[in-house]
Design a protein around this nucleic acid. Sequence first.
RNA 1: GGGCGAUUAGCUCAGUUGGCUAGAGCAGUCCGUUUACACCGGAAAGGUCAGGGGUUCAAGUCCCUUAUCGCCCACCA
Length: 728
Amino acid sequence: MNEKFLKPYEPKEVESNIYKFWENTNFFNPSVCIEKGVTDKNAEYYSIVLPPPNVTGVLHLGHAAMLAIEDAIVRFERMKGKRTLWVPGTDHAAIATQTKVEKLLQKEGIRKYDLGREEFLKRVQQFAQESHDTIATQIKAMGASVDWSREAFTLDEAREKAVHAAFKRMYDDGLIYRKEKVINWDPKGQTVISDDEIVYETRKSTLYTFKYSPDFPIAISTTRPETKFGDTAVAVHPSDERYSQYVGQTFDIEFAGEKLSIKIIADEHVEKEFGTGALGVTPAHSQIDYDMSVRHNLPIKQVITEYAKMQTSSELVNGLKVEEARTKTVEWLRENNLLIEEKEMEQNVSTAERTGAIIEPLPKLQWFVDVNKKFKLKQSKLQGITVDQEVSLKELMQHAVSSGQIEILPDRFEKTYFHWIDNLRDWCISRQIWYGHQIPVWYKGEELIVGEDPKDSSYTRDEDTLDTWFSSALWTFSTLGWPEQTEDFLNYHPTNLLETGYDIIFFWVARMILMSTYLLGEIPFKTVYLHGLVRDAKGKKMSKSVGNAVDPIEMIEKYGADAVRMSLLVGVGPGSDMNFSEDKVRAYKKFANKIWNATRFVLEQTSDEDISQPSYISPEDQARIDEFSTLMQEITREFEEYKLYLVSEKMYHYFWHTFADIIIENSKKRIQNPISDEDTRSTKYLLRFLLTQQLKALHPFMPFITEEIWQTINKDNTILMVSKWPNQ
RNA sequence: GGGCGAUUAGCUCAGUUGGCUAGAGCAGUCCGUUUACACCGGAAAGGUCAGGGGUUCAAGUCCCUUAUCGCCCACCA
């Protein structure tokens, strides 16, 4: 027996070596597995792409959970003999990374404009590189068996090709268009953001009821009096008799020094019961009002700038910040006896996810993806949709899931998904930031070239960059070589599983379905497994600023990656949040030690001869073998259904409370007081057999300790990672 | 306003096709240093499975309802 079993299991001493050992075998790469004959060349394909972590810093426990789940699945599929590929990569996370670097530069007293676009981008790239390196180290520390030879980055050259190809296809199909519309402007980040990047915050605000001027017949209510300088209409409900006499009339009035021309319109969207039942319409500074202005053909009058300052001919507020302008306007209303009522109310304020700034709706020229426009699908492997069939992107997204071609776990999220699509508006994809894929459009006067650099200095390229989710939406196939028809692409797409957090189902999962069904006529993945949030022990969201964030690397150093993985897997079903507790990790470190010591016992009591099956197996031992075999069938089925939370717990329970507590304990008596040689032999075989089988079954969850033991006790140079799964 | 989830031992949570004498980790009680393991073993204790109603031979599990907490979505200005 190897001496190392005489002392307790020390994960720190083995984990990095084992990972290097695996890397040296190159068996993370399925092509090598075929070449070396560990995988059958006709084997079924199984593929997963790693949700690329943002290069904004380090991995957190949520990433650790993701890696634990995905690695367990990948190792399981690999052991079952499939040609298994797990593609790693990182995400440039455009706006998040740029904001982060801007903040770092701020500490040095540097603004990005001082550096200029090129120099600033160099800084960002340097930061991204360092962050990438840290992340790669952390992924390895978790034991993730990703194929590093296929690593990708959402902003590298190959992915840029994919982005350009996708953009061009969509443009040519009329699905990408450029238009001036009211968009969500982030005055702090100085960029437009999409609807999904808005975070609503409930705040107290005041609802003011007033008249524009003494001679105006209708009083209106608003929480933003300063925007009223941009009003071009007052809307009332069509059935509201109080105001029906005025509908259709236009009033030219003066409002605090600004000339307004207000048309009275009737629109279904006005609530009769709210306020006075009349709504001042500000087309330039409200999404709803903009929509109304389109319906009623109203002029759009911008009075607020990109810096959230007033721009009007009113001396009273011109040049002021919106908050100051609000105060001034209210004062003016009061002084002129126009203010009728002030009422406190709760209001949802839109803020920007990244900067926290209050969103200022503004009319701006931007690029959009049209989700409702019908087009002819060029190719289709989708069941129920044929080539040349007229569909919209929305319909494609709905169909992929409603037809059952994509299954979402837990299935209740399918409802959430459909609900999101029902309410989906065109996706604004251009951003006024520097870091990211620059929009592949070149202009020369009225002319424009899309998708390819004309290499002609008389053309100027669009300054804007794309929403980071545009490139991540292509991830399942851009990582496999698309737009080239590479072997990887042809073999590994669609991928089998997408495992990610439920918080990015809209940002990412839905957009991947959009891009894949549209560009390839194919689903991007068959199953979506959504994991929950990892919270702290008290159930609070972990955050750096609160100081309750747990560093997974610290946990790995203390308890070992196997223990950390188990603590994130056992009992945590898809879709449910989990509270992270160090006690749980500690418990699984003990379990690792238990495995270690049980191995020691078995090795002490048996010899290598006992590995081979004897001619006689006692009935009770046979019963144990059958029992284990039943367990294996059960957990194999559950594993295939992605019920890792059950499988991991069952294996834990079997090893400790059946194998160690009962089988090993019974064997002591039988070995010490032998009934017969045959019986002893049978017992020893059982111990050896169950130990090796359990190492296999535990390997997807606890790869390090199981491989370490395997390498010590097996003399035939086999590797546990690529050995056959015990399911007979 | 709409949707979803949670409520099980002192604490944190499993229990996902209804069959449980309801489990695990931690904490706590008693016993045990028998050569795998004290990062251990054995034993006991602890629960009207949020409340109420229903379906069923059988309900923690399915249905209805109430309460509390939490999350997501939404253009009442």
